[in-house]
């Protein structure tokens, strides 16, 4: 799994990525030195839990993907089945081309099947 993340991080503008369970447990990560694993994992778990809860409350069930664009960075959370793939990117990255890489990485993680911790 680390290999998948490493390849994803080679894409220009990607600062780091990790695979995290819905309760915030890190399965694999590959982050640049600007990012702290614990901080990203805690933030991701919080986003996933809160978003799922509010969607469910309004009858919209789960989400497959959450893209967050802020004034100084971008993040994408993709549901890969047992866990979520979280990608942290630079502000200037163009989402279109990176999306293809994220989808492909998400698919490969999903195909790895059951995750045992």
């Amino acid at each position: 799994m680390r290999k998948i993340l490493k390849e994803l991080n080679d894409v220009v503008g990607v600062k780091g990525s990790l695979v995290v369970t819905k309760d915030g447990m890190v399965i694999a990560s590959h982050l640049s030195r600007q990012l702290q694993e614990e901080l990203v994992a805690a933030m991701a778990a919080n986003v996933i839990r809160r978003t799922r809860r509010s969607l469910e409350r309004h009858g919209l069930r789960h989400f497959a993907r959450f893209t967050l664009v802020a004034s100084h960075g971008k993040m994408v959370f993709t549901d890969t089945g047992p866990a979520f793939l979280v990608v942290v990117m630079d502000r200037n990255v163009e989402l279109g081309p990176v999306d293809i890489e994220i989808e492909s990485a998400g698919m490969r993680i999903r195909n790895q099947g059951e995750i045992r911790i």
Partner: peptide, 17 residues
């Protein structure tokens, strides 16, 4: 999430399901 990650203020959020 943006504040925790020090990425400034929210510009856009997209949820696909």
């Amino acid at each position: 999430a943006s504040r925790r990650m020090d990425t400034g203020a929210l510009v856009r959020a997209e949820i696909e399901g």
